[in-house]
Design a protein around this nucleic acid. Sequence first.
DNA 1: GAGCCACCCGTTTTT
DNA 2: CGGGTGGCTC
Length: 746
Amino acid sequence: MGTQVTSSKKAAQILKNLNPAQQQAVIWTEGPVLILAGAGSGKTRVLMHKIAYLIEVNKIVPWKILAMTFTNKAASEMRERIKTISHQNSNTIWMGTFHSLFARILRKECTAIGYQSNFSIYDADDQVQLIKMIMNDLNIPTKNVIPKAVQSQISRSKNSLTSPEQYRQHAENMFEDYVGQIYTEYQKRLRNLNAMDFDDLLGNPIELFGSNPEILARYQERFDYILVDEYQDTNHAQYRILKLLSQQHRNITVVGDDDQSIYAWRGADINNILDFEKDFPECRTFRLEQNYRSTQNILSAAHSVVKNNQGRLEKTLWTTQESGEKVTLIHCWDAFGEADKIVTKIQDEFRLHQRNFKDFAILYRTNAQSRIIEDRLRNHGIPYIIVGGTRFYERKEVKDVIAYLRIIDNPLDTISLKRIINFPQRGIGAATIKKIDIFTLEKRISFFEALKKISMIEGVTESIKMRIANFCQIIEKYQSLQDKLSISEMTRTLVEEVGILANFKNEGTVEAMSRYENVFELLSAITEFSKRTEKPTLATFLEEVTLVTDIDNWDNRGNAVTLMTLHSAKGLEFPVVFITGLEEGLFPLSRNAEKTSQLEEERRLFYVGATRAKQKLYLSSANRRNYGTETFLSNPSRFINEIDQQFVELEFPKPTESERRREKISHSEEGSYYDYHYHTETSSQYEETLPVLQILDIGMRVFHETFGNGTVQDIEGRGENTKVTINFEAVGRKKLMVKYANLEII
DNA sequence: GAGCCACCCGTTTTT
DNA sequence: CGGGTGGCTC
């Protein structure tokens, strides 16, 4: 009786700040639950309170709860907040990303499927290295078969749980035949290297559970409750894992929004959410449609775009907030003008409202767009922080040091070993490696074993043998030192002894200095890791390093404008958001504009971006953009046209004198942007446009603004994508897109 | 085996 | 613009 009173008191406390729909979703703890939660409707809040409720009211021990989040950062934030809601220790909840949670389970159980628990985890770059090696061995030319394309094919197959055998059966062309061969060999070698790639962290648990029912039963028993955030972005492998693990207790709560599914390209299957009710017929569905984040104008604008998608679960978000400011649409001359305009707007926002730098997010479709914006922010002394881009742990020098650590941890990891056998240079080149490789095959031993037996290999000079023996000794020394030294001490002495720092110091260039600093930064990252981890081991550090997400590295405590891709922005919110580069070809990206499914994903990406904004949303596009050496003229994004005009105000900065001078004005005919709002009054501010000449033929003489006069030599493609090869008198042969080249027939 | 140069490429999003 | 590669020379 007493406990009941306390429980209901606790329940009331946990539920008091939730709306009725959220409360329902929280207290319905038994059986499968689907929570369809629109943007900003408090889905993370619901998950958090549900976990607190399970612990406090249902008296579930924390370690029997499994909760999947999209980033590790989300997991640790949630853990903290659960602690404050429930005042209980939340540390033992199994909470994190799919990848890190199953890496943890695999470390414990992988001997059952023939792995050693110190397996390495390969990122995309390691995978490509391995694929290149295999292609080399199988004599597959890298000209027609691009290793990176092979990697993405293999990854795709693994995500959909297609085995190499199945893949080979369905191969339909030369490329796929090759991929099939490589895939088979790739899987075999990963095992020999005692390595798993990202996709194996999801695929191998399924194999493990499939072939070891007693292990599966143990985990099924263990996890009384399973909760999944961002369920719309799970792939088939993740779906299978969830289904396996939830079979016994059937207490699975998934939260998602089909409108925010933006990872189909890496195997996420939107049907996982659409079919949940079919897979779990007894499931209860809750809808959260009240938005607490954005103003009405922002919501309506976002909705007017996403509603153009077919086959979505219709829902209408509503808010009690006032309509707020209209969405501001800015059409700029070029990317520099766009960046300038963003700076001006940030300054205006400071003047008109009380803002901090950290109130702003600038979002873009591709990482490459950040550079120009960065430059302008820097020039104006606006502090900014970039999320993603080239990641710290993917920098060459950092990966090199990591490779040392990996080979110390896992001597079978030949990919890492080959990476550093000649770094810093110790005179061991391709020819020697080849000889060792042959020896490896003959004796059926690992590459590292072969190095230890270098004296037995013929055709290698004595001096090289000496150098290899030295190298081996160093590695072996640190392997035995592993348990005696802390990781930071070990790495420090290793980096010193091997001469990595000296190597960069001697070079003396600016790049070498920045590499030097990055290695130092890695050292301090290790120290920091050791401080905050209970029992820091080399293996756990290496694992964390490969499984960090971009957002995990985002330090949002400082006061700075945040720059990131639209993908990275998922799940976040900011008072003021800029979505930049709203041009056909860039957003939506041209290669995704043709297939409906891909176009719809781009549209959802726009929706995700727009709904990050709490008070003010700016959209910007530019008239032209540089890619490498070429300038492309662009038409405004179709998404701009899709926004209901009543929620929008327009700004068309007149081109400045310098912009006018920068290039003679011209643009192509198509593009409904001008029909949309600019047709009448202001289009005259642009000079008369010359029509793009499409009627080209081989042998014609043409004029190009920068390249001068030339002769058409070849034409390929048609319509939009027509490309011509032109032999220019001044600069020789160039291949150009007719659409952008602005050629004149002479 | 290493260093240098010239060209060529492509350039989406990420665990 | 920048990274990566392939070919050349020392």
